[in-house]
Amino acid sequence: MPDLATLQSDFVRAILGADRGAACAAVVGDPAFVSQRLSIYRDTVLSGACDALRLSYPVTERLVGTDFFDQTALAFVRQAPPHEPVLARYGAGFPDFLQSLPTLAELPYISDVARLEWAVDQAGHVSPAHRRPGRRFILPVEAGSAVVTLAGSLRLVESATSVHAIWRAVRAGDEEALPSLGWTGGRQWLAVHHADDDIAVTPLSRPAWTLCAALLAGATVDWAIAATSRLPEPFDEAAIAVELLAAPFVRVELHDPRGSEGVS
C-alpha cells in the first residue's frame, strides 16, 4: 500500500488528469465503481476552481458565452491549478491562457478585456476602509518638496484594443453597442483604482501611464522619467505633471520648509 505522500500525489494526478489507476488501486471496491466515486471529488475540485475564475472574469464569460468559458476554464485549471486556498487570488494567468488559444486568435480583445477584469478584481481586494498607500516618492518643487503617493489599489493595463468601452458596455448589459465600438483599434493605457466605494478605470496618456508603470515597478523617479522620455511621443514634463496631479489615484503633499503644508 502507498505511503500518504504517494497516495496524495496519485490523487492529484487522478483529479487533474486521466491517470486514475494508482488512486483507484488504493480504494475499496470494483475499479469502475471506484472511478465514479473519485469523480465526485474531481467534479468538486474542478467546479470550485472554475467558479473562482467565473467570479473574477464575469465580463469575459459574457463575451465568450458560458459553454466556451466553462471549457476554457476547465482546460486552464488542469494546466495551472491553484496553489493556495485563497481562491480570490487565483487566475492571474488566465488572460495569457486565453491569448494563447488559436480559437481566439482573431478576437485579441478577449484576453485584453480579461486583463482589465483581473486588474479591477484585484484592486477590489484592497479594502476601502484600510486603503494602503502604494508607491511613495519625494519630488523637489519650487518651495520645498512634494511627497507624491500612488494609491495602493492602483493597477495599470495596456491594451491594443478599446477594452475600456467593451468592458463598460458589457457591465452595463449593453452588448448591442459592441459592434460599434471598433474592436481592433484604439490602443489604450488605463489606470484601475478605488474611487469612493467602487473601482474606477481612468484612461491615461501613454507618457503618464509609462511613468506610473515604472514607479509601480520600483524604479527611481529619475529612471522613470528617463524611461518616459524615450517614448516616441513628445516628452512634455509639465503636461504629465498636470495630468497626474489631477488623477484621483495620486495624492500630493507639499512640504514648505517655512512650515505651511498643503494637500491636493
Binding site: 505522500a5 492529484v12 468538486t44 491553484p82
Partner: peptide, 8 residues
C-alpha cells in the same frame, strides 16, 4: 500535495 491546492 506537491504545491497544488485542490479545492475540496
Amino acid at each position: 500535495a506537491g504545491g497544488v491546492y485542490l479545492p475540496d
